[in-house]
């Protein structure tokens, strides 16, 4: 399942998404980085957190969500 979410996150890299995880959390942000285990998003519509919070990789890419915890990703798109 992680491979599926890895592929989906890579495909929609740079887009704003809503990620639903199996703990009931909903994360809204722009996909900035994807690793085989995690997707990193920068939250949108929120003020920047100063100084601490996201750790080294998160400093650039936002915060990470385990791909294994994802149950759904909402995107926007154009359809015919």
């Amino acid at each position: 399942m992680s491979q599926r979410w890895y592929d989906v996150c890579c495909r929609y890299h740079g887009q704003i998404v809503r990620i639903h995880d199996r703990f009931g959390n909903v994360h809204i942000g722009r996909i900035t980085h994807v690793t085989p285990n995690r997707v990193y998003i920068v939250p949108v519509g929120q003020k920047k957190l100063g100084g601490f919070g996201y750790g080294y990789i998160g400093w650039r890419f936002g915060y990470g969500i385990a791909l294994a915890a994802i149950i759904g990703i909402t995107l926007i798109g154009l359809f015919w």
């Binding site: 399942m1 599926r4 592929d7 989906v8 495909r11 639903h20 994802i70 149950i71 759904g72 990703i73 909402t74 995107l75 926007i76 798109g77 154009l78 359809f79």
Partner: peptide
């Protein structure tokens, strides 16, 4: 261009996901 929300779930088949990917490529 106003766009439409859609959700990819864990239950969406690989075949359907491949069609969705192809749609993104065509766009």
């Amino acid at each position: 261009v106003s766009q439409t929300p859609f959700t990819i779930t864990s239950t969406l088949s690989e075949e359907m996901l491949a069609i969705l990917n192809r749609h993104e490529y065509m766009k």
